[in-house]
Simulated assay, not measured.
Amino acid sequence: MFAEAFEAPEDYADAPPDEPWAARWLANPDHIALLAERDGIPVGALTAYVLPKFEQARSEIYIYDLAVLEAARRRGVASALIDHLRVIARDIGAWTIFVQADIDPEDEPARALYRKLAVEQITALHFDIAP
Results as ranks from 00 to 15, higher is better:
1 M>G: 08
1 M>W: 01
3 A>Q: 05
4 E>S: 03
5 A>G: 09
5 A>V: 14
8 A>M: 15
8 A>E: 15
9 P>F: 00
10 E>P: 15
10 E>R: 15
12 Y>D: 02
13 A>H: 05
16 P>H: 02
16 P>N: 01
16 P>E: 01
17 P>H: 09
18 D>G: 14
19 E>H: 00
21 W>F: 13
25 W>I: 03
26 L>Q: 11
26 L>H: 12
27 A>N: 15
27 A>R: 13
30 D>Y: 10
33 A>N: 14
34 L>N: 04
34 L>A: 06
34 L>T: 05
34 L>K: 06
35 L>H: 00
36 A>W: 08
37 E>T: 12
38 R>C: 09
39 D>G: 00
39 D>K: 02
39 D>W: 00
39 D>A: 09
40 G>M: 00
40 G>I: 01
41 I>C: 00
42 P>F: 03
42 P>N: 06
43 V>G: 01
44 G>E: 02
45 A>Y: 00
46 L>S: 06
47 T>W: 11
47 T>A: 02
47 T>Y: 05
47 T>M: 04
48 A>W: 08
48 A>D: 03
49 Y>K: 15
50 V>W: 05
50 V>N: 05
50 V>Q: 06
50 V>T: 12
52 P>I: 06
53 K>H: 04
53 K>N: 11
55 E>N: 12
56 Q>N: 00
57 A>W: 04
58 R>N: 10
58 R>K: 06
60 E>L: 04
63 I>Q: 09
64 Y>H: 13
65 D>G: 09
65 D>Y: 10
67 A>C: 12
70 E>I: 06
71 A>I: 00
71 A>D: 04
73 R>V: 12
73 R>S: 13
74 R>M: 07
76 G>F: 15
78 A>C: 14
78 A>N: 11
79 S>T: 15
80 A>K: 08
80 A>G: 13
80 A>V: 01
80 A>T: 09
81 L>A: 05
82 I>Y: 01
83 D>M: 12
83 D>C: 07
86 R>V: 06
87 V>D: 11
89 A>G: 07
92 I>N: 15
95 W>V: 15
96 T>R: 12
97 I>W: 09
99 V>G: 14
101 A>V: 15
101 A>I: 06
101 A>E: 08
102 D>M: 14
102 D>I: 01
102 D>K: 09
102 D>F: 12
104 D>R: 01
107 D>C: 05
108 E>S: 10
108 E>R: 14
108 E>Y: 06
110 A>E: 05
110 A>K: 13
113 L>E: 13
